[in-house]
Amino acid sequence: MRKKTVMAIPEGNVITLQNVYKTYEQGVSALNGVSLDIKQGEFVFIVGETGSGKSTLIKLLLRELTATEGDVNVLGYDLGTIRRGRIPKFRRNLGIVFQDFRLLKDRNVYENVAFAQRIVLEPAANIRRNVSEVLAMVGLADKYKMKTSQLSGGEQQRVALARALVNRPLILLADEPTGNLDPEKSWEIMQLLEKVNEGGTTVIVVTHNQEIVDRMNKRVITMKMGSILSDVDMGGYEVED
């Protein structure tokens, strides 16, 4: 596997937000003075009603957006001042899973996962081994030849998860990963995420799924109108949708 080069992480935190504001061009205020720290190896839920600023927060962490005010530091990268040319290198430390899977429908399971390895220029010889390993981990070793359109929703999300994990990210961001899945499949995905977390990867899950949040018993950050309403270790879902 590739060696990761990471800058000094302040006080063991992989993510630090200090008094972060985000106002969109239309004047819509999405985040209002958010501060939080996430330590290496943590499993964190971010919950909140629609429009509470969860998605904006994820986009800031991915450096898809920049903060209007305040500091966003991820894995030692100051995302307010990072040069454009360094963004790809920074993103290679992150894995991301979306609600709608975002798989390449014209390619099979193997190709969807190998795609992520090719992008980070992994030597061809390693790709086959790494993809096989990660597909076995998500329980799809026997379906590697199938087109993603032939898979169930739960299986598609596993492929997306395998793609996010194959480059061994330090942080896994999951944006509503169970939004399109039934409770049983949702629970399976959460168990996989927990397994990933046990391997040392920091996992951040944005969700509306109350049952899962309550059952997992992890740190829960609740957001409302662009601010952090509560931040509880081993908490539950407290949002009234």
């Binding site: 991301i96 975002r102 390449l104 795609f115 992008i119």
Partner: peptide, 16 residues
């Protein structure tokens, strides 16, 4: 477009 978005998230360089 979709593929490019994914490439971007995974950390593909502009050149790639």
């Amino acid at each position: 477009r979709e593929e490019i978005t994914i490439m971007k998230y995974v950390g593909a360089t502009d050149f790639f």
